[in-house]
């Protein structure tokens, strides 16, 4: 009993530690003062209006969303077959391949960003959006391979063999039997990759171009010269969006999609 109490107090502290800063940010978004202050004076929605009045914010929000979506979709197209190949075939240098695919999670994002900048932008003169897409694709691919790979590891491959014995060729078996059984892994991978791309700063920093910048980098720039609650308002909006998405996922797939 005493142990439980101690645990309870400990969890309350941890939650407080995580939530109080978020709460403060939410509160500051409604203050009337022209700088972020806490506690706030007055109550206003003008900073939220400010977000939507600023072309920079709206444009970068759209860019970030597009970028995250495209990068994640392309990474899924490449990552699912790659994860399948890694888990299914015992080939030489499998371990090496695994660590290669995971390397971007080990190599700092700044390095990835800088290399792509050197190679794609300076050498190949790639347009800004394509450069960003390439960078974000590389950032999210390891997450896809990892998450899809781990759900493939749970998959009993004799199920696939059963499908072959019933007349499926290998491609049919993949689509009819393997894919439907790893959908929760795929949607978890999608969410993780999308959020990672959306929040990414180091890679985007190097690859942004004149007038083309993602939401996090726009925020960074904005904070450098301004200290008004618009930033808090943006954060609140992003939190809301995340909660809504999580809610939808929870309702449609169940939270198990993330723990599997």
């Amino acid at each position: 009993m005493r142990k439980n109490k101690a645990l309870l107090i400990f969890s309350i502290f941890v939650f407080a530690f995580l939530f109080v800063p978020l709460l403060i940010i939410v509160v500051t978004a409604f203050g009337e003062a022209p700088t972020i202050t806490f506690p706030i004076k007055g109550f206003t929605f003008k900073w939220f209006a400010n977000v939507f009045k600023s072309k920079a914010f709206v444009d970068s929000l759209i860019l970030s969303g597009k970028l995250a979506l495209y990068a994640t979709l392309v990474a899924l197209l490449v990552g699912i077959p790659a994860a399948y190949a890694i888990s299914r075939f015992s080939m030489k240098g499998k371990g090496l391949l695994k660590s290669f695919f995971l390397s971007p999670t080990i190599v700092p994002g700044v390095v990835v960003g800088y290399s792509i900048f050197q190679f794609a932008i300076l050498k190949l003169h790639m347009p800004v959006f394509q450069g960003l897409l390439l960078g974000h694709f590389l950032v999210v691919l390891p997450y896809i391979i990892r998450v899809v790979g781990s759900s493939l590891e749970q998959f009993d491959f004799s199920i696939e063999e059963a499908a072959w014995s019933l007349g499926c060729n290998k491609v049919q078996a993949f689509f009819k039997v393997v894919l439907p059984n790893i959908t929760s892994g795929i949607s978890a991978a999608f969410m993780l990759a999308f959020i990672n791309s959306f929040n990414n700063i180091p890679v985007s920093m190097f690859l942004k171009g004149p007038g083309i910048s993602t939401l996090p980098t726009t925020l960074m720039n904005y904070i450098e010269y301004n200290y008004d609650p618009t930033v808090s308002a943006v954060s609140v909006l992003l939190m809301l969006a995340t909660i809504v998405i999580m809610f939808i996922v929870e309702k449609t797939l169940g939270i198990a999609a993330f723990t599997k």
Partner: peptide, 15 residues
């Protein structure tokens, strides 16, 4: 997939 043999696995391997 061209043999048309019936297989039953130890783990059943149902879909």
């Amino acid at each position: 997939h061209k043999r048309n043999f019936g297989l039953v696995f130890q783990s059943y391997a149902l879909f």
